[in-house]
Computed example of a mutant assay.
Amino acid sequence: MMEKALRLGTRRSKLAMAQSGQVAEAVRRVTGRPVELVEITTYGDTSREHLAQIGGTGVFVTALRDALVRGEVDFAVHSLKDLPTAQPEELALAAVPPREDPRDVVVARDALKFTDLPRGARIGTGSPRRMAQLNAYARTHGLDIETVPIRGNVDTRIGYVRDGELDAVVLAAAGLNRIGRIDEVTDFLSVDTVLPAPGQGALAIECAADHADLIAALGELDDPFTRVAVTAERSLLAALEAGCSAPVGALADLPPLSAPLERGDPQADAQIVKEMRLRGVVGTTDGTRMVQLSTTGPVPQTHDRAMALGRELATEMLAQGAAGLMGERAQ
């Protein structure tokens, strides 16, 4: 007799369905059980307001979490950058799979790179974080651009470029990769130009906290480095008291080696094992004021240490005036 199917709660968007489908296949492999997708509509999917207006925090995940608590689904998949930083006691973050490319990308007319866009180019994005950093880069590099707030799914956003309403839009590389549209990218933005949102490119798999067997099974999909990296990034976000829609970027990664080393070189292996760099940025959306800092240290071996690393960098950023640069503060 076939075991009862696990019910995976997912948003209805093309991207959400694609990434949930990929997780479903991985869960089938590790559990040997069938998995069925249960489509759930969230407030963020139905509201036409911009995220900064509706608060941003939790608008894409609350309905999924409610379904978990009510027992209507067994586990749920979220884009980790959409998760509020406070974890509900009744739910467990069972797994954070290996991270996709965390960078932001440009889809522009005529296959243009960001720095090749014409004077007065209109660039669409729904993210105050992207606006802040794009405008800051433009100001310091003599570019003449206008950032335009937009909403909608990938088709809608890229459609603005195809229809000539905008010269370019900025999206997450991970999302385009998961739906098989990465070939439409005309430029990959270096994280030195635009730091991604905390947790960007990573997925979160949640289930009820009292389902120990399911937590253990889903835990097979967890990537320890991705988990400590996004924990540090989200801790910084929480310590800044900023929501998902605030103009905050953060990335924890491996710092570049000072000199090229061969694969298998003990010095390279030691650095990869031991060091992680955490960077954070906060800025006004017009790009006129920015606070950007970083710290490098041992890769955190525990959740608490990763949290501490994020808090420590946030404290330094607040000391330099970060709080005054955030238009959206968590309530």
Rank of each mutant, 00 (worst) to 15 (best):
L166I: 05
L214C: 11
L117Y: 06
I205G: 03
G180E: 08
R103F: 05
L189Y: 03
R162P: 01
V107R: 10
E100H: 05
V154I: 14
T186H: 11
A212Y: 10
R178H: 11
A136C: 08
T147C: 15
P118V: 13
L189W: 01
A138W: 04
G164L: 14
G126I: 09
I179G: 03
C207T: 14
T125C: 08
T125P: 07
N153Y: 08
L117D: 10
R181N: 10
D104Q: 08
L143S: 01
G159I: 15
L214E: 04
Y137P: 14
V148K: 11
S127P: 09
A212Q: 15
P97M: 11
V185A: 10
A111F: 14
G120W: 03
D101C: 03
A121E: 06
G159L: 13
Q200H: 01
A204C: 02
D116E: 14
V154W: 00
L189N: 04
A138C: 11
L218H: 04
I150E: 02
Y160H: 15
V185N: 11
G175K: 07
G199M: 09
D192P: 06
A94D: 07
G152R: 07
V191C: 04
P128Q: 09
V169R: 02
I158P: 04
G159T: 15
G120P: 12
V170W: 02
L117I: 09
P102D: 00
V154R: 00
R181A: 14
R122Y: 04
S190D: 15
D101Y: 02
A132K: 08
T140D: 11
F188S: 07
G201M: 04
Y137V: 11
A95R: 03
G199Y: 08
A204K: 02
A138Y: 09
P118Q: 10
F114D: 14
P128W: 11
V96H: 00
A108R: 04
R139A: 15
A168D: 07
R129K: 15
R178M: 13
E184R: 13
L93A: 06
T140H: 07
Q133E: 15
P196W: 10
A121K: 10
L176R: 00
D104T: 00
F188K: 10
R157Q: 12
L112Y: 01
Y160R: 15
L171D: 00
R99P: 05
D192V: 14
I182K: 06
T193A: 12
F114S: 14
I145G: 05
A136T: 10
T115R: 14
A209D: 07
N153R: 09
D101T: 02
R181Y: 07
A136F: 11
